[in-house]
Design a protein around this nucleic acid. Structure first.
Length: 752
DNA sequence: TAATATTACCTTTTT
DNA sequence: GGTAATATTA
């Protein structure tokens, strides 16, 4: 712990510098930055300058001497957010930012575990399995535990295990809690999976968190060491933390509890990954004496866009009350466009983008298109190519997900971690070496029964029961090749090792022999990977880690890297991404496509009762837009082959009609009745009366002028007008003026 | 064992 | 529309 002296000495230097850090902040932002020690919760609405507050606060802590740079742990959820925070902090405090830990939960955990893995029975050079690796491992475990993959899909089993881990329920606890036959079986797989993962010295993404918690709980010395190191903790997007992450923060916060968390419950969109909004809602209880600061002034969007967002989110019953406001002016109305099908939708979007760029002077990099599912990008991409609109897609099929890249990385993993059974299985017969499933299964089960590393087993194949002479010979050859490569893997250039692997294992040769366009593409991808390795080598020459070999460091880095991080801002491209990926970003112009029931909100979310979360996702999308927002829906859409009729998303109807320009480009009638029903008061007259249908929320009571009402978000008010289509006008207390609400949908109650 | 053909099943969102 | 597991055959 630091002495009193360093606190005192701190306040003298650079009073100017400190004032400059605070100068352009609004009062609540300033208050958050200047908060001293102890827990702090910042409820930061969309676009309210939360990153600015976080980075300034880090700089402030350093500038005032309250914190040494090395005592700061700043946590984000994505690498991209971490990179941005790091560079913004660096601008403020300079090179000392190097000493801080500014990274994702997962990278921080991986780094802690690298230094301590042996205490938990893992090798220091443990391998990190991504989702597909872990799914393969699950499948293998299911086969070995005699669990029928037809009755229990591997994905659902993994999902259950993952959910359990994120709640820190280990295999033993899991078994104790479960009753049904199904859950018993999952418990069998869970136990086996945990054993196999340790045997392979491998961790999945959940393990990174769970094992770090285990480490801190089991070893007081480790816990104390990191508590002393991270005296100041800051967490971004706190609403997305799960229980394991919450526990980790609790363990790290220590007695001083210098923990700052920033988040927005209205932007919690990761409950499917076990994120628990309660973490943010109950922060004040968990960290008693916490100061709470709300940031409600929005610096990003027009008043119209904010009104739309506020009106939409008001349909969610439970949230921390907050009202986003701006003094930026009204701006232009939103556009809701209805098209015939996804092709017409794509043409509309492409045409509008062209128009916005050529007539209204927007730059391509200021435009983004968001969708619910990655699969939706395809049609749009085809159209953009035809319209010659340059674009980039964030997420989706990833470079590191390609088979050849995974193969190459699996080879390297096996060199570094000789216990890595999944990498072995991936690589041993690729390219074909005459080592088929039978042989592989025998080697793996021999490794499992003897407890040896796969590497050692394959090095002495004659000891494996049941192997024929041909198999023994093939395996020996492979083992020799690998042994030769391993000697050289100890040090030196990663790029060189990778090239040696690709050539000496015959991998490239096999691709060349294919003489297909596809194989050529694969070779190009591998060359790109070599390029990545070269870049890594060059950077490492400047700042290397002594504890790890270059190859180990490379693999550790790459396993937590996704191409999320490849978002480019400087090039003139429009950006395509899922709504989930859009969180934390902002664009002048935003298109949200596929706003149809079943797609958005997704039918599965509706079935599982996660409608509120879908609505928050919509809220996130809307609040990304600075100036212009388009929402589109198609009346017909192909979903995996078969086409179907669609109904506009209920979210469109939740946006007050006076904020919207409605653009109808559909060509036939018949569908309109369904649409009019959802869009409600948006247009009047005409059309056939829609068949009666269940309302999302039953109409409560008829409201009359003069009724006192209370609204989930806006608070108390009085009804000042009643309009057709169940629209009522309410004047809320607290100088917010009047709002039009749809009585059937708004979370509004009469008070007597 | 490997290569090909056929079928089933899919799809939410991601560190 | 696409992948991945399975059946079939050389």
């Amino acid at each position: 712990m630091t002495t009193e002296a360093s606190y005192g000495a701190a306040l003298t230097p650079g009073a100017d510098a400190i004032e400059r850090l605070l100068a352009d902040l609004n009062p609540p932002q300033r208050k958050a930055v200047e908060h001293g020690g102890g827990p702090l919760l910042v409820i930061a609405g969309a676009g309210s300058g939360k990153t600015r507050v976080l980075t300034r606060r880090v700089a402030y802590l350093v500038a005032t001497g309250l914190a040494k740079p090395s005592e700061i742990l700043a946590i984000t959820f994505t690498n991209k957010a971490a990179d941005e925070m790091r560079s913004r902090v660096e601008e403020l405090v300079g090179g000392v930012s190097r000493l801080m830990w500014v990274m994702t939960f997962h990278s921080a955990c991986a780094r802690i575990l690298r230094a301590n893995a042996e205490r938990l029975g893992y090798k220091r050079s443990f391998t990190i399995y991504d989702e597909s690796d872990s799914l393969r491992m699950i499948k293998r475990c299911m086969a070995d535990a005699d669990v029928d993959p037809k009755r229990f899909t591997p994905r659902s089993v993994r999902a259950q295990i993952s959910a359990a881990k994120n709640q820190l329920i280990d295999a033993t606890d899991f078994r104790e809690r479960q009753g049904s036959f199904y859950e018993e079986k999952v418990a069998d797989v869970y136990e086996l999976y945990e054993r196999r993962m340790v045997a392979a010295s491998a961790m999945d993404f959940d393990d990174l968190l769970v094992r770090t918690v285990n480490l801190m709980e089991l070893f007081e010395d480790v816990r104390e060491r990191y508590r002393r190191q991270f005296r100041w903790i800051l967490v971004d997007e706190y609403q997305d933390t799960n229980h394991a992450q919450y526990r980790l923060l609790q363990l790290l916060a220590g007695e001083e509890r210098n923990i700052t968390v920033v988040g927005d419950d209205a932007q919690s969109i990761y409950s499917f990954r076990s994120a628990d909004v309660r973490n943010i809602l109950e922060f004040e209880r968990d960290f008693a004496g916490a100061e709470v600061i709300k940031l409600e002034q929005n610096y990003r969007s027009t008043g119209t866009i904010l009104d739309a967002a506020n009106a939409l989110i008001a349909h969610n019953p439970e949230q921390k009350p907050k009202r986003l406001w701006t003094d930026a002016g009204r701006g232009e109305p939103l556009t809701i466009a209805e098209l015939d099908d996804e092709h017409a939708e794509a043409r509309y979007v492409a045409g509008e983008i062209e128009r916005l760029i050529s007539d209204e002077g927007y730059a391509r990099e200021e435009v983004a298109v968001f969708y619910r599912m990655n699969a939706q990008s395809r049609v749009l991409e085809d159209t953009l190519v035809r319209y010659e609109v340059p674009y980039q897609v964030i997420g989706g099929t990833k470079f590191y997900d390609r088979a050849e890249i995974k193969d190459a990385i699996a080879y390297l993993s096996l060199l570094v971690n000789p216990a890595d059974a999944m990498s072995f299985a991936r690589v041993v017969n690729s390219p074909r070496r005459g080592i088929g499933q039978q042989t592989q299964a025998r080697i793996l089960s021999h490794a499992n029964t003897t407890g040896e590393d796969v590497w050692d087993v394959m090095s002495r194949p004659e000891q494996v029961p049941g192997l024929g002479t041909a198999a023994v010979k093939a395996v020996s050859r492979f083992a020799e090749t690998m042994a030769g490569l391993r000697e050289r893997a100890e040090d030196g250039s990663v790029a060189r090792i990778l090239e040696a692997v690709l050539h000496e294992t015959g991998y490239i040769e096999a691709l060349e022999a294919e003489r297909t366009l596809e194989a050529e593409g694969r070779i190009e991808n591998l060359q790109e990977l070599v390029g990545v390795a070269e870049e890594f080598d060059a950077n490492r020459a400047v700042e290397g880690d002594q504890d790890q070999t270059p190859l180990e460091e490379f693999l550790a880095r790459i396993s937590l890297y996704t191409d999320q991080d490849t978002l480019r801002e400087d090039e003139s491209l429009i950006t395509l991404m899922t709504l989930h990926n859009a969180k934390g970003l902002e664009f002048e112009v935003v298109f949200m496509i596929g706003c149809e029931e079943g797609l958005f909100p997704h039918s599965r979310s509706v079935e599982e009762g996660n409608l509120d979360e879908e609505r928050r996702l919509c809220y996130v999308g809307i609040t990304r837009a600075r100036k212009r927002l388009y929402m589109t829906c198609a009346r017909r859409r192909m979903i995996h082959g078969a086409g179907g009729w669609s109904v506009p998303s209920r979210f469109l109807g939740e946006i007050p009609s006076e904020l919207v320009d409605h653009h109808d480009a559909t060509t036939r009638t018949g569908w309109r009745s369904a649409r009019d029903e959802v869009l409600g008061g948006m247009r009047s007259g005409g059309g056939i009366q829609p068949p009666p249908r269940k309302q999302p929320r039953a109409p409560e009571v008829a409201f009359q002028v003069g009724d006192d009402v209370v609204h989930a978000t806006f608070g108390e008010g009085v009804v000042t007008g009643v309009e057709p289509d169940n629209v009522i006008v309410v004047r809320f207390r607290g100088g917010q003026g009047e709002r039009k609400l749809m009585a059937d949908y708004a979370p509004l109650k009469k008070v007597s």
